[in-house]
């Protein structure tokens, strides 16, 4: 991915931040080229008590909303890590234009004994792998905006 002109500013974590990324990928032929993705994905940042629900549908991210912890877990899987690690990942993406080899979703997942991607259902959790490139592309696209951190 090449880094284009930065036009959007948003604070992580917030609904606006996720919507800004959604707007970018929904208009990106590169994202479309990866293929359809149908999954509900929770985002949890426990130490900030922030929880979000992202809905990936066909070729777009169709919905973003803030939810309760239970709402974030009532998904195919949720991505959970402390705020500092979220920040490290996003800063790395910004710095490199995309995640470097040590900050991909899978790598982060493997390094956490509890997993970065978690689920109450062993089948639904596999959506993390089935659509992995879509999710990676989604977070890599945050390089295209100016992220402020709380």
């Amino acid at each position: 991915m090449t880094q284009g002109a930065t036009t959007t500013k948003a604070t992580f974590p917030s609904v606006e931040w996720f919507k800004a990324i959604s707007a970018i990928v929904n208009d990106d032929p590169g994202y479309n080229h990866i293929g359809t993705c149908d999954a509900t994905v929770g985002v949890r940042i426990p130490d900030l008590e922030k929880n979000y629900l992202l809905t990936f549908e066909a070729f777009e991210v169709s919905d973003v909303r803030e939810v309760t912890p239970a709402g974030a877990e009532d998904t195919d899987f949720w991505l959970e890590m402390p705020y500092a690690k979220w920040k490290e990942m996003l800063e790395n993406i910004k710095q490199n234009g995309k995640a470097d080899l040590h900050h991909t979703l899978n790598t982060i997942d493997l390094e956490d004994p509890e997993g970065f991607a978690r689920s109450h259902d062993g089948y639904r959790r596999d959506a993390f792998y089935r659509f992995n490139q879509t999710f990676q592309y989604f977070f890599d696209s945050s390089a295209k905006i100016d992220t402020a951190f709380v």
Partner: peptide, 8 residues
């Protein structure tokens, strides 16, 4: 990020 040495 890395796997915790304690864990290993």
């Amino acid at each position: 990020m890395a796997i915790s040495p304690d864990l290993l």
